[in-house]
Design a protein around this nucleic acid. Structure first.
Lengths: 158, 158
DNA sequence: GCTGAAAAGCATCGCCT
DNA sequence: AGGCGATGCTTTTCAGC
């Protein structure tokens, strides 16, 4: 669907990506004005970027606390085996929990980094316990965020 | 700007949040149809959610690889002091790097979890070295993502 | 707080450069 | 490839329930 480092990505495309990353609900007319194009070719470029899989979607960024998710934390989970079946099973289990927002397998074998949300500290403890007691889990290290200095969703478009 | 667990957030509001989290560029008419409202009150609700800070923004989700960011990794950084001035200085330094996308201070003193992007493995090594050599840094543990099973930007709207 | 109509603005198409 | 003009929607406001 998308090639590595697409050659047909000029400075106008990158400008479009930067603008839509900053404000994904901008109208096409406003976007066109900012990148010095008229509306139709601007829209054609956006559609092309979407169809090439370079723009994967658009999402509202919602304040977790407003929805009752008071705690965000990370967990480093170590498994007792590196067998593919064990890794897959843990991955499937973790991914099935709505509180698990990210699940990354870490190089070096048998470790996962998760990002989770919890309603409160008790809920966080419960989630940690559920992780600890999950099949093949050896240890769980929770990394509790006390302050977030920077949290930018995307990537530099330099 | 936003209160904890806003009481004036009914099921229609939550439905709106879920829809815009899934597709932030949906037209207001389509959104209204999905939440069984006509367009004007739907738009008023969206504006209210934006002004209350519950919707913090809208962002295009861009494929990092298409822009040349081949490597995404995390770094656990331990500092040699927990003095506020030292923590603040590290936070300011890390946040100033465009490759650092997230910078979280971790409970327990003197630790930070960063999420970074790099153009390639050499660039990743260079960033790790820059972290290691930064003032007051005691150790850097890189957590290299080899597979991401789940990566949902938002929060459960249940 | 919703509906419905109406004005203004936008998305999108076909054609031309 | 980008621009122009036309058409049909969408957004947004406003009066009235």
């Amino acid at each position: 669907m998308n090639r590595e480092q697409d050659p047909g990505l000029d400075s106008v495309d990158r400008h479009i990506l930067a603008e839509l990353q900053a404000d994904g609900r901008m109208t096409n007319v406003e976007l066109a004005r900012r990148v010095n194009l008229s509306a139709p070719p601007c829209l054609r470029r956006v559609r092309r970027l979407e169809e090439a899989g370079i723009i994967r979607g658009y999402h509202a960024d919602i304040d977790p606390v407003s929805l009752g998710w008071e705690v965000t934390f990370f967990a480093l989970v170590g498994l007792e085996s590196q067998k593919q079946a064990v890794l897959d099973a843990f991955e499937a289990l973790a991914s099935s929990w709505p509180e698990v927002r990210e699940c990354h397998m870490i190089r070096g074998g048998g470790d996962f980094l998760l990002r989770l949300v919890a309603r409160d500290t008790a809920h966080e403890n419960e989630l940690t316990a559920r992780l600890t007691n999950a099949p093949a889990v050896l240890r769980v290290q929770t990394l509790q965020t006390i302050r977030t200095a920077k949290d930018e969703a995307g990537v530099p478009v330099a």
